Simulated assay, not measured.
Amino acid sequence: MTVSELTTSAQDYLKMIWSATEWSETPITVSAMADRLGVKPSTVSDGIRRLSKQGLVTHAPYGSIELTAAGREHAVQMVRRHRLLETFLVEVVGYGWDEVHDEAEILEHAVSDRLIRRIDEKLGHPTRDPHGDPIPSANGHPHTPQGSPLTSVSPDRTVTITRISDADPEMLRYFTELGLAPDTRLTVVAHRPYADVTTIRLSDRDVDLGPSAAEAIWVIAS
């Protein structure tokens, strides 16, 4: 079975399961998947059972969901499709980085492997998408994400943004206004846990970030 032979929901489930542990060590659960998809847990449970029968996942009752080797292969292919499409939409079509996630969610199920190869060639084989998420290689090898959450960086350290979560388009637009994007350099001034504020210094000003904004940013040492 190829990834194109899977149903749209199966493709979505596998991609979500894999992506959940790319930047976190916590495997995803049925309830968490249901929350993200906006469906009932019973609907997700039915889908997971079908994937289990196909040998693509393992799932202990009320426990986390794990991909099998075959499931992981299909999931990585879907992640590659999604991130190449996002990159193509930004670099070639002219979309904003806050506009591409939903478009790529639709297109990734319709494009052929041949078109994905052509897009990859057209873009010069990019290694990350507009948000900094690594793009798996053509042979299905996922590149290891680099970076640490901004919230974990000690004050007075200068760092470079390596990735910004694309979960919230409004937040991406906010970051655009602030001048925050992958490759932006900044200095962590202070974490104020009781005020839920992280203060960063850009080249010309200090900026206070709330918890959701600070948690969306991953950085590496400059």
Score class of each variant (00 low, 15 high):
residue 1 M to H: 08
residue 2 T to M: 07
residue 2 T to P: 09
residue 6 L to C: 03
residue 7 T to L: 08
residue 14 L to A: 02
residue 19 S to Y: 03
residue 20 A to C: 07
residue 32 A to M: 03
residue 36 R to Q: 12
residue 39 V to F: 05
residue 39 V to N: 04
residue 47 G to W: 00
residue 48 I to C: 02
residue 49 R to T: 13
residue 51 L to Q: 07
residue 52 S to Y: 00
residue 53 K to Q: 14
residue 53 K to P: 00
residue 54 Q to D: 15
residue 54 Q to T: 08
residue 56 L to F: 10
residue 60 A to I: 12
residue 61 P to V: 10
residue 61 P to Y: 09
residue 65 I to M: 10
residue 65 I to Q: 08
residue 67 L to R: 11
residue 72 R to G: 09
residue 73 E to S: 15
residue 74 H to T: 04
residue 75 A to C: 06
residue 77 Q to M: 10
residue 78 M to V: 11
residue 78 M to S: 02
residue 80 R to I: 13
residue 83 R to C: 02
residue 85 L to R: 03
residue 86 E to S: 05
residue 96 G to N: 14
residue 100 V to C: 12
residue 111 V to W: 07
residue 115 L to T: 13
residue 125 H to I: 06
residue 131 H to L: 02
residue 133 D to N: 14
residue 134 P to S: 08
residue 136 P to T: 12
residue 142 P to I: 07
residue 143 H to T: 15
residue 143 H to M: 10
residue 146 Q to N: 10
residue 148 S to I: 14
residue 150 L to I: 03
residue 157 R to L: 06
residue 158 T to K: 13
residue 161 I to A: 02
residue 162 T to H: 06
residue 166 D to N: 08
residue 168 D to K: 04
residue 170 E to M: 06
residue 171 M to R: 09
residue 172 L to I: 03
residue 174 Y to N: 01
residue 175 F to H: 00
residue 177 E to R: 14
residue 178 L to T: 06
residue 189 V to K: 12
residue 193 P to V: 08
residue 193 P to G: 08
residue 194 Y to Q: 13
residue 196 D to A: 14
residue 204 D to N: 13
residue 205 R to L: 09
residue 206 D to A: 11
residue 214 A to Y: 02
residue 218 W to M: 02
